[in-house]
Simulated scan of single mutants.
Amino acid sequence: RPDGTRNPLQTVPLLDAITTGRYDAVFGGGRRDEEKARAKERVFSLRDEFGAWDPRRQRPELWSLYNGRHAPGEHVRVFPLSNWTELDVWQYIAREGIALPEIYYAHEREVFARNGMWLTAGDWGGPKDTETVEKRLIRYRTVGDMSCTGAVDSDATTLDAVIAEIAASRLTERGATRADDKMSEAAMEDRKREGYF
């Protein structure tokens, strides 16, 4: 959907699948440095019978002890990387020699500016008549729906250059590249309360 409003389209199928499968736990890849609301989340994040998240119901996880207990209909979302940062992930990729698609490295691409991000043209609704397409050297810090996932200006064409760029950056991955997080100060927290991952 245009303008980064795809989350409602993802939440309903997610909650339907959890209910139908009667899952006790669902794994996700969220990290605390991605967005402010994620910093309130725990490794085991309790969700109510509607899939909603309430930060006040999050249990302490002292000494890495996790409590997966939940009532019928409730479940936990498990975020094993929640204590990692984007830099930790990239350093792990380097240490383990993991190959990645070129989209994560700087490359020349036709993009247009919208709400402070570089987006790629597509059938989803961009560019608008007032938006100019230009060729830029960019890379994607995250990969997602092209209607709300932006690229960043970058000349980081190697793994070491990406790590150096991230180490120097003061802007989070989601804050730099996700339109759905720019909709309001509490956008992510609001979506999580509605059942979003």
Rank of each mutant, 00 (worst) to 15 (best):
H70T: 11
R32I: 00
Y104M: 08
N83F: 03
T20K: 15
G144E: 01
A151V: 03
L100G: 12
Y66E: 05
R47K: 00
N7E: 11
G21W: 15
T20V: 14
G126T: 03
A37T: 08
P101G: 07
E35G: 04
G97F: 09
E185I: 11
L137H: 06
S82T: 07
I166T: 05
D145N: 14
N7Y: 07
R136K: 14
I163L: 02
A37C: 06
D160C: 08
N7A: 04
H70K: 10
D190C: 05
W53M: 07
L62S: 12
W124V: 10
D3I: 00
G51H: 03
E74V: 10
D48C: 08
H75L: 09
A106M: 06
W124M: 09
E74R: 08
S64V: 07
Y140I: 01
E86K: 08
E165K: 02
E41T: 13
V43R: 11
W63K: 15
A161C: 06
G195P: 04
M183G: 04
E61C: 01
A164L: 02
T5A: 09
E108D: 12
D160P: 13
R178I: 08
E110N: 12
T157G: 08
T85L: 12
T11F: 14
L15P: 04
D88L: 00
R191G: 07
K182H: 07
G175P: 11
Y196M: 12
A113F: 05
D123S: 12
P127S: 11
R174M: 15
T120D: 01
E185N: 09
T120E: 13
R136T: 02
A71I: 04
G68I: 00
D190G: 12
V12E: 11
E34N: 06
V12P: 04
T85W: 03
D88W: 01
L159S: 01
S45N: 12
E173D: 09
A52I: 04
R174P: 00
G68S: 05
R95F: 13
V162W: 06
K135I: 03
A25H: 15
Q91I: 07
R109F: 00
V26C: 08
T157Q: 13
A25S: 12
R178F: 05
L137S: 15
G28V: 14
D181M: 12
W84D: 14
K135T: 14
N115R: 15
K135A: 11
P72N: 07
R6D: 11
E134P: 01
I166N: 01
A99H: 02
T149D: 05
N83P: 10
L81W: 08
A94T: 00
E131H: 07
E185Q: 10
G195T: 02
G4E: 02
A71C: 05
R47M: 02
D129F: 11
S184Y: 00
T85Y: 00
E108N: 10
T149R: 01
S169H: 02
R95A: 11
W90E: 06
D129Q: 14
G68C: 00
T120I: 08
R42T: 09
